[in-house]
């Protein structure tokens, strides 16, 4: 578990981001216990943005987000999350893509 977390952070470290501080483009709606898709995001998000907190709820830190849309496809319709693109110029900046 820890090793893979370290690895993903190393991977993201190679990428360039312009973080729009204080204006996250994805928000998780308040919930008591997460739906199965929301919980799946803690493993399936390729940037590891989703985590379970001490109370068993899923939280997001979108700084390393690559804007792939996987979480949107899994959790927008159910209302688990609100998903927008970052403001123009912000977010991930691929040098190669």
């Amino acid at each position: 578990m820890t090793t893979s977390l370290v690895r993903i952070e190393d991977k993201l470290y190679q990428n360039r981001y312009l973080v729009d501080a204080g204006r996250p483009h994805i928000k998780v709606r308040q919930h008591q216990s997460p739906s199965s898709n929301l919980l799946a995001l803690t493993l399936v998000c390729p940037a590891n943005c989703y985590e379970v907190n001490e109370d068993g709820q899923v939280e997001i830190t979108a700084d390393g987000c690559m804007e792939c849309g996987t979480c949107r496809v899994l959790c927008e319709e159910s209302g688990d999350i609100d998903w927008s693109y970052p403001r123009g110029g912000f977010g991930v900046l691929f040098k190669f893509g």
């Binding site: 991977k11 190679q14 990428n15 690559m66 792939c68 496809v73």
Partner: peptide, 9 residues
Amino acid sequence: EIKEYAAHL
């Protein structure tokens, strides 16, 4: 040498 990690649908 790895220089970028990307994800897309």
